[in-house]
Amino acid sequence: MRRRTIAGYGAAGAGAIALTLFVGWWRVDGPGAPEPIGQRPMALTEMDFRLTDHEGNEVGPETLIGRPTMAFFGFTYCPDVCPTTLSDISGWLDDLGDEAKQLNVVFITVDPERDTVEAMAEYVSYFHPAIRGWTGPEGQIARIADGFRAAYERVPTEGGDYTMNHTASVFLFGAAGRFVTMIDYHEPREFAVPKIRRALEEETEGAT
């Protein structure tokens, strides 16, 4: 009796593992795998959104086109990833020195409900002065995130608060608005600065 129960559990366990492996294969390598082309951020020239920067100026894709761009999604109530990424970005900008002056650097909130223009202004003031903070109506945030193929999701926490899951990669675009590459979270700093230089060099290619 007991042996049969154990065998039953064993079979169920093996079945569960097989199902997990199958689901994993389906989503990563199989027919359910995301379309790689579809995951690539659109060119800024193809995007359409209206937001407000931390100084109250109206901004859109045209604000970025003409200079290389480094952009990142986050929210100011984020205790770990966002301050870390903004400090990393500040460090990369310091490393680049004068070269960094040609870059647009934008921190886009995925939490416009709490991240007002004033909240963004205060928050970005603690980091490198080149960093601009963008917010706007939820629908416009959804449009820019869609253009970048960035994901975000509101997650309730204990006590009635909420946090945001969000794409933590840093996006790089050339001056002509073409997507160049991204810097993943946890990527070592020695890879980040050369990637930014690639986006800076893309400028001359885009101009010719």
């Binding site: 990563v28 770990d80 994901a151 946090t163 899951n165 794409t167 979270y185 946890h186």
Partner: peptide, 18 residues
């Protein structure tokens, strides 16, 4: 009032969650 050990995880798509 509510101190807790949390963990940030970043998935293959680059999405971070806590």
């Amino acid at each position: 009032m509510m101190p807790e050990i949390h963990e940030t995880k970043t998935n293959a798509e680059g999405v971070s969650s806590m």
